[in-house]
Design a protein around this nucleic acid. Structure first.
Length: 564
RNA sequence: CGGGACGUAGCGCAGUUUGGCUAGCGCGCUUGGUUCGGGACCAAGAGGUCGCGGGUUCAAAUCCCGCCGUCCCGACCA
């Protein structure tokens, strides 16, 4: 490709609407352009990167025995009604009608479609296992698109779905995908953390997310630098140093006019440390009003609640059940409602909690003596610096971008959509599913987040839009153009992707654009070095400048690339 | 959906507080010339519904009302 004939609209200045580095650089390097909030065009260079990512994913999926298909982006609504997700996912669905008023939606994911396919086409255990995947555009009406390509309304995803006869088969399929994912991210040049994820109320036993640590990430993860324990904050646990028990005391009610928060009680005249308070939260768990207790210094992790459906109770519900409003709630003496308590409260004495009477609290609470706890469990959110659950290290909390997810689905969709097969005995059984996603377009952003410097992108070789850029510095100089042209054609002939910057711009422009776009290797052909009989090679991610004779250039570049 | 900011040439911005003649600046773009190893210089140009609609006024980029769009924080996130 000759630069003069390409469409690479690099930007000298940082676009106003871009805050995170991948967004800025993808725009500045001329890879993407925004059409609307969360909707982007991939320009030629961006598309080349996207295709490379896709191809790596495709090769590894194929190698893992998965079968590529292409499912529709538009789905009749009825399929989604069969699993109930037309309703449960309603808010993120793009919906429309055709000319005869039939209702459609744009697929936000494809469990329904692939399971319908399996139900229709797979009948016998002899046809199993199968792993079916696609690379497809997905549509989600995100309430808030943001961060460039990281959270968008239209994006490209690789989604794979495994169908097995039994749990052991699912375990194998899952393991195969897990290993394929490791290879995929390594080839993409992404350093990922595989973290235990919250698998949701419907989930199976295992769910791992592949995360790229980045300040632009929307997920929070807890990691242990010492033993590599890593978990999504929704799931993370920790060793907590239990504070000193307060003096065992007498239960006593005291007036706290105007006090509504834990923090209020930490101030004079009460001076009650947050960790010696009991935070009483009221939730509707599986439609049953339930009290949930954590220490005042902790925050509840809703994902850990043992329920399929959970929502905070409304103030009216709370007032009706406990006789007080949030701010003065407590579990002392409550027997009509189940009480769940975090493990950190076990055995605590001398605690302070609400009295279920507005503007009054209780002190001297002995949790074991005064509160009827139905269930002890871990429902708190891990905080930075707490002990690692697997070793004696300390956890760090970081932001990360989720680029992949492997998940044991179970039979939710196969049951709803009748994906059954006949086993050896002729009995009808339901297929057991796993699903495995990779955010392909999101990976492009994640790679840029991880691979850039102050000059621009530093593409890993495997996904670079071109592996080499050849820069003839003075296009008016015949010898320069002759040498540059020979190297350009030589690289092409060796199967190396190369762009020739034949623009008439000054050298500085070319150097800066090459750095900005981030080609792994740059070849500089200029009069200064030509008189010495050499051209210059520069590896984007290194500072060192090498010189080689034009005749040796192609071979040296091939060697350099092989090391990248 | 709640909170905040912004919307003026392709990009980045000034001008809006305090209404006033032909709406400016830098970069980029076009033409000519001089240049040519890290974003050149000179000269001449092109390019604008000041987000949209309504209102106030002799007069609106500027004031008022409504709407739309984009970004950030939060809520949400199969």
């Amino acid at each position: 490709m000759k630069w003069s004939q390409a469409l690479i609209p690099t930007l000298r200045e940082v676009p106003k609407d871009a805050e995170i580095s991948s967004h800025q650089l993808l725009l500045r390097a001329g890879l993407i352009r925004q059409l609307a909030g969360g909707v982007y065009t991939f320009l030629p260079l961006g598309l080349r990167v996207l295709r490379k990512v896709e191809q790596i994913v495709r090769e590894e999926m194929d190698a893992a025995g998965a079968l590529e298909v292409l499912m529709p982006a538009m789905h009749p609504r009825e399929v989604w009604e069969q699993t109930g997700r037309a309703t449960s996912l309603n808010d993120i669905l793009f919906k429309f009608k055709d000319r005869s008023d039939r209702q459609w939606l744009l697929g936000p994911t494809h469990e329904e479609i692939v399971t319908s396919l399996a139900a229709a086409e797979i009948r016998s255990y002899k046809q199993l296992p199968k792993n079916i995947y696609q690379i497809q555009t997905k549509f989600r009406d995100e309430p808030r698109p943001r961060f460039g390509l990281i959270r968008v309304k239209e994006f490209i995803m690789k989604d794979a779905y495994s169908f097995d006869v039994d749990q052991a088969g699912l375990d194998r399929s899952y393991q195969t995908m897990y290993e394929a994912y490791k290879r995929i991210f390594a080839r993409l040049g992404l350093k990922t953390l595989d973290v235990e994820a919250h698998s949701g109320a419907m989930g199976g036993s295992h769910s791992y997310e592949f995360m790229v640590a980045s300040p632009a990430g929307e997920d929070r993860i807890a990691l242990c630098p010492k033993c590599n324990y890593a978990a999504n904050l929704e799931k993370a646990t920790s060793r907590v140093a239990v504070g000193l028990a307060g003096a065992a005391g007498v239960l006593e009610k005291f007036a706290t006019p105007g006090v509504r928060t834990i923090e209020d009680l930490t101030k004079p005249p009460y001076n009650c440390a947050a960790q010696n308070q009991i935070k009483t939260l009221v939730y509707m768990l599986n439609d049953k009003l339930t009290l949930v207790l954590v220490r005042g210094c902790d925050s509840l992790n809703e994902a850990k609640l043992p329920a399929v459906t959970a929502r905070p109770a409304h103030p009216e519900e709370i007032k009706a059940a406990l006789g007080a409003l949030p701010g003065s709630l407590g579990a002392v003496g409550v027997t009509k409602l189940p009480v769940l308590a975090d493990e950190t409260l076990r055995g605590r004495t001398g605690m302070v909690t609400g009295a279920n009477e507005d503007d009054h609290h209780l002190r001297g609470v002995d949790v074991g003596r005064d509160i009827t706890v139905a269930q002890w469990l871990d429902v708190r959110t891990v905080q930075d610096g707490e002990g690692c659950p697997k070793c004696d290290g300390a956890l760090k909390i970081d932001s990360a971008i989720e680029v992949g997810h492997v998940f044991k689905l179970g039979t939710k969709y196969s049951t709803a959509l009748g994906a059954n097969y006949l086993d050896e005995k002729g009995e009808s059984k339901v297929m057991i599913m796993g699903c495995y996603g990779i955010g392909v377009s999101r990976c492009v952003a994640a790679i840029v987040e991880q691979c850039h410097d102050d000059k621009g992108i530093v593409w890993p070789r495997g996904v670079a839009p071109f592996e080499v850029a050849v820069l003839p510095l003075n296009t008016g100089h015949a010898e320069t153009m002759k040498v540059a042209g020979e190297i350009y054609r030589g690289l092409q002939a060796s199967g190396i992707s190369v762009i020739l910057d034949d623009r008439t711009d000054r050298p500085g422009v070319k150097f800066n654009d090459a750095d900005l776009v981030g080609f792994p290797v740059r070849v500089t052909v200029g009069e200064k070095s030509l008189v010495k009989g050499v051209v210059e090679l520069k590896v984007r991610r290194e500072a060192e400048l090498r010189t080689v004779t034009p005749a040796d250039a192609v071979g040296t570049i091939r060697d350099l690339l092989a090391q990248l």
